[in-house]
Design a protein around this nucleic acid. Structure first.
Length: 262
DNA sequence: CAAATCCCTACAAAGTTCCT
DNA sequence: AGGAACTTTGTAGGGATTTG
């Protein structure tokens, strides 16, 4: 990906982007989302904090990311969230963030980048690359600020809540599916074993192979709901075939019981 | 022009997760 | 338990812009 190693970046110094933040589609989109801040219903800082925390896990944020979010929230004032005339921007320097969060510089940069990629923050860069801002001395409202913009969290509030709800639901369903998969697997296995043990007529060895085909290398812990559902339905149809075969064979066995009884 | 900021990538070390 | 594979963190090296 990107340019080959050692690619000369000096064709036109004015156009060179070396040394400044690269824009990815995700970063760009977060920027667009942040723009809608003035059109939304105000969201209290407390609600924003809570929803961001809930969304952190499904968004696969690291603990450093979460520390960073907490720090950024701590830097914003309540009025920044109720006053829609200016987005909730905070302007700590990276150095300050390092000192106050205990994260290294590299981690600070990476966390900010990740939060922006996830669409939780965007950057309002000043011309000099430094972060700074001004508040009205009386009202404490932000008049002008360059730094880290938390507006996407407010704009995406409903979406983030839904993300958390869906993740929670998936967790519950996954648990259910894993339980049912284990039940079906054991039931199939026991039926096959019985068929073999009583030497009933039936393709038990093939069934066994079919079962391992479905369940071998299965790591239910790291599977998503769709994969679990697929495995479950494969097991259900196998179970039906196995049960039918067993039923037929045991019926024959009862008609003709001298063979293979123990 | 140096200082103060910010940004980037590459690579190695350390930590974590998953599989056998 | 041990090892492979992946993720996260820290370090190093390099660049841009503005200000005094």
């Amino acid at each position: 990906m990107g340019l080959p190693k050692g690619f000369p970046m000096k064709a036109s110094p004015r156009l060179s982007t070396a040394g400044s933040r690269k824009v990815s589609p995700a970063l760009h989109q977060a920027q667009q989302i942040a723009r809608k801040y003035s059109e939304i219903e105000p969201v209290s800082k407390q609600v924003a904090v809570t929803v961001a925390r809930l969304a952190a896990t499904p968004m696969r944020l690291t603990s450093a990311d979460k520390d960073m979010l907490n720090f950024l929230f701590a830097r914003s004032k309540s009025i920044d969230w109720t006053d829609l005339s200016s987005p909730p921007i905070v302007w700590p320097s990276n150095r300050e963030i390092c000192i106050e969060t205990g994260l290294s510089l590299a981690t600070v940069k990476r966390c900010l980048r990740r939060l922006a990629e996830r669409g939780l923050i965007t950057f309002c860069d000043s011309a000099d690359g430094k972060r700074h801002g001004h508040r009205c001395p009386e009202t404490k409202r932000i008049l002008r600020a360059y730094g880290i913009n938390l507006a996407p969290i407010a704009v995406r509030l409903a979406e983030l809540k839904e993300l958390h709800r869906a993740a929670h639901e998936e967790k519950v369903f996954s648990k259910q599916y894993r339980r049912e998969i284990t039940r079906a697997r054991r039931s199939i296995r026991m039926t096959i074993d019985a068929g073999l043990e009583y030497q009933l007529e039936g393709p038990w060895v093939e069934f066994l192979e079919a079962l391992s085909l479905i369940t071998d290398g299965m790591r239910t812990a790291s599977m998503d709901l769709a994969e679990l559902r697929e495995i479950y339905s494969a097991l259900v149809s196998l179970k039906e075939r196995v049960d039918n075969a067993f039923l037929r064979a045991s019926h024959q066995h009862n008609m003709n019981p001298q063979r293979g009884s123990k």
